[in-house]
Design a protein around this nucleic acid. Structure first.
Lengths: 347, 347
DNA sequence: CTGTTAGCGCGTTCAT
DNA sequence: ATGAACGCGCTAACAG
């Protein structure tokens, strides 16, 4: 970002100006307490007056690692990931690290390329929300010494740190709420079970039904290919046409839920009067949906921060002493109007 | 990200393995065409077999600048900025650069800190969507040799590159559309004019009215403090209560528009039947609004890419030869239902 | 087309 | 608490 003036100012220049040695200057930068108050003052002054900017690249080279953390996501415009990015950014800042944003554009090849570039930069660690659950590839990277923290892909068989959300619990939360407030049949509008999150949320939903001693048949599931509002709209439209209107619908993300609500009210089916709808993720669109949407909130910022902490810990500790950690975050039900009590008129 | 095995493999190791000199290895890395086909093959092979990863930190130090571009935004969770981030990421990737994401959390102090950190990292440039239009600060940074590209803050008096949107034109686009399709009074729901974008959009709107030779009084303006859906909801509620329902409403961002629509349909005022609504930004929420929202689309990806191009150009060209560029992007009207034709029943 | 070489700016010994 | 000296891995300039 800067192309320093000709008479480049480095540690040496500061040392000269302050009448100390370069070693001392380095110390005031990296371990200020090791330098006498007075000396430090003079050095700091010299730094100011020459407006010296330490060369991080040189430091990184000497140290072997850069104060940089990679964040590899499939799509930064996805609110889920941008919320995580914010948490990551905040935690990294506090630790004096920079965040290298790597958007894979849903392309595994690009994802791999990003990991390689991070390695070149000698990033201290990489936080990865992986596109493919290709264990081999990740394992190989780790074997090469990469400090990887998996985001939202907890895997018990995996060796390495990870931070993730408890999707089973989230699914159970959503369905329990529906069971609490509605009497009739319930419907799950879900994405493909090949997506772990979808499978987990469905599992949690089913679990909630069983835990109540209810018949499993009370919960039906529709699987759509894409988890978009268009897909939700289409699914709900078909549902209405078939005449099989459930008492409550749990959509495994907010986009689906918005589409479902649009279709329902478009066909004069009242939400929450006729049908309760619950979404998942608690993105911004939940609040600005046609009917404000009850949703499962995920602590995205906290997850981002935890990921940074895990990566930094792993990068700092000696390779052998390090014990991998798996942090699982609990989701939370956020009540809005889409699942409000039905006001039963007396009589 | 990696802590190479003990017998560290560097250019020298590759050179030895391939039977060439380090200079040649460096060349196959940086200017492959300068090396004979056969030699390059041997070198590449050696690189593979020793799985050598070039040390970017060392290269950066030697070169004086890092293959890194900073992106400084007030809030990465804002869809406008995350869309830009995507464009930036894409363009930077293609150029072999990494993107350092700096989220200022709407805090000028943090913003400044980020710029300093970028300077330490020797980033090749910084793309800044500045919180404060503090020219002095930016000028001072540039004077120190920082290659800054301003995002969405075109300023004729500013020396330096910038990429921005033509908000005046966008405002005109929105209002022209309303004038085309509605007969009665029109309303502008705007944020504070201290935000340049708000002022420009209002200016454009007024311009459109004048250009038609219409009386300026046909367009009234309401200014709200925050550009959120809550504020939009409140404003529209007050409007309805006052009984002064306009024929069309132009909100200077989509969040406001969503709130306005929610309030209107909540009070049984039909959109687009009774009132047409137009938003600005064409974010995802526009499509999933209670009534799909007509909005002004901004080419966010293109803007991000252009910013990278400008920064790289400035960083590459000799300081003197460089001519600063100001790229202004044109917005575009996206028609959706919220401003659809009123179907007038014959009779 | 390829080899040789001189630093780039800093952290880190090891003395003092 | 401070100072002197070494080398991290690489690029660029030049010689061949």
């Amino acid at each position: 970002m800067t192309r320093p003036a000709r008479p480049r100012v480095g540690l040496a220049a500061i040392a000269r100006e302050a009448g100390v040695s370069v070693g001392t200057v380095s110390n005031v930068l990296n371990s200020p307490d090791r330098v006498a108050e007075a000396t430090r003052g003079r050095v700091l002054e010299a730094i100011q007056s020459l407006d010296f900017i330490p060369n991080g690249a040189a430091a990184a080279m000497r140290r072997g690692v850069n104060r940089l953390i990679g964040l590899v996501v499939p799509d930064i415009t996805n609110p889920f990931y941008s919320a995580i990015a914010r948490g990551v950014s905040e935690a990294a800042d506090d630790a004096g690290y920079g965040v290298v944003l790597c958007d894979s554009h849903d392309d595994p090849a690009r994802e791999l390329q990003h990991m390689e570039r991070l390695a070149e930069h000698r990033a201290a660690g990489a936080l990865v929300a992986p596109l493919t659950a290709d264990k081999n590839r990740l394992a190989r990277l780790r074997a090469k010494g990469a400090h990887l923290v998996l985001i939202d892909r907890a895997d018990p068989t995996e060796v390495g740190c990870s931070v993730s959300m408890d999707d089973v619990r989230g699914g159970a939360l959503a369905l329990s709420h529906l069971l609490d407030t509605r009497d009739g049949d319930l419907l799950l509008v879900n994405g493909p079970h090949s997506i772990p999150q979808c499978a987990h949320r469905a599992e949690g939903a089913l679990l909630a039904v069983r835990d109540r001693g209810e018949d499993e048949s009370r919960l039906q599931e529709i699987v759509v290919d894409e988890m978009t509002s268009e897909a939700g709209y289409a699914a709900a439209t078909k549902l209405v046409d078939s005449g099989q209107i459930p008492a409550g619908i749990f959509c495994t993300n907010d986009q689906l839920a918005v589409g479902v609500i649009q279709a329902l009210i478009g066909r004069s089916i009242d939400v929450p009067g006729d049908v309760a709808v619950v979404g998942y993720g608690d993105l911004d669109i939940a609040a600005s949906a046609p009917v404000p949407l009850t949703s499962i909130d995920q602590p995205k910022l906290a997850l981002g921060k935890a990921a940074v902490a895990a990566a930094l810990l792993e990068a700092t500790e000696s390779a052998e002493a390090h014990r991998h950690s798996s942090h699982v975050f609990e989701p939370r039900l956020v009540l809005r109007r889409s699942s409000a009590e039905i006001s039963r008129t007396p009589g």
